Amino acid sequence: MDRLRSILKSPRLSISILILLTVLGLILYFTYPLKIHHVLRHTDNIESVHVTYMSNGKFTDYLLTKDQGIHFNEFIQIMDENTYTRKFNTFQGGSGDAILMTVFYKEKDGESNNYLVDIRELGIIISHKKEYTINGDSKQLVNKLVDWIMSK
Rank of each mutant, 00 (worst) to 15 (best):
M1C: 03
D2V: 08
R5P: 03
R5M: 11
S6A: 11
K9C: 10
S10P: 02
S10V: 04
P11L: 03
P11G: 02
R12K: 08
I15L: 12
I17F: 11
L18T: 08
L20G: 11
V23A: 13
L24N: 09
L24P: 05
G25N: 13
I27H: 02
I27E: 01
L28I: 07
L28S: 09
L28M: 05
F30K: 10
T31C: 10
P33C: 02
H37F: 01
R41C: 05
H42Y: 12
D44L: 01
N45W: 00
E47C: 05
S48M: 05
S48L: 08
H50T: 10
V51P: 03
Y53S: 07
M54R: 07
S55R: 10
S55M: 02
N56K: 13
G57V: 04
G57E: 01
F59H: 13
T60H: 15
T60A: 09
T60F: 15
Y62C: 11
L63S: 14
T65Q: 06
K66W: 00
K66N: 09
Q68T: 09
G69I: 12
I70T: 15
N73C: 04
E74Y: 03
E74Q: 11
I76L: 05
E81L: 00
T83Y: 11
T83G: 04
Y84T: 11
T85G: 13
R86K: 14
R86G: 07
K87S: 08
F88W: 14
N89A: 12
T90I: 15
Q92N: 11
Q92C: 10
G94E: 03
G94N: 03
S95K: 02
S95C: 00
G96E: 04
D97P: 06
A98D: 07
I99E: 10
T102K: 12
V103M: 06
F104H: 11
F104T: 12
K106Q: 04
E107Q: 12
K108I: 05
K108M: 04
D109R: 07
D109H: 09
G110Q: 08
S112E: 15
S112M: 15
N113D: 15
N114F: 14
L116G: 14
V117Y: 09
D118F: 10
I119M: 13
R120Q: 15
E121A: 15
E121T: 13
L122W: 12
L122N: 13
G123M: 13
H128N: 13
H128C: 06
K130P: 00
K130S: 01
E131I: 02
Y132K: 02
Y132I: 04
G136D: 10
D137W: 06
K139D: 14
Q140D: 12
L141Q: 08
V142R: 02
V142P: 02
V142K: 01
N143W: 07
N143V: 00
V146Y: 03
D147S: 10
D147K: 06
D147L: 07
W148Q: 08
I149E: 09
M150C: 12
K152E: 08
K152M: 07
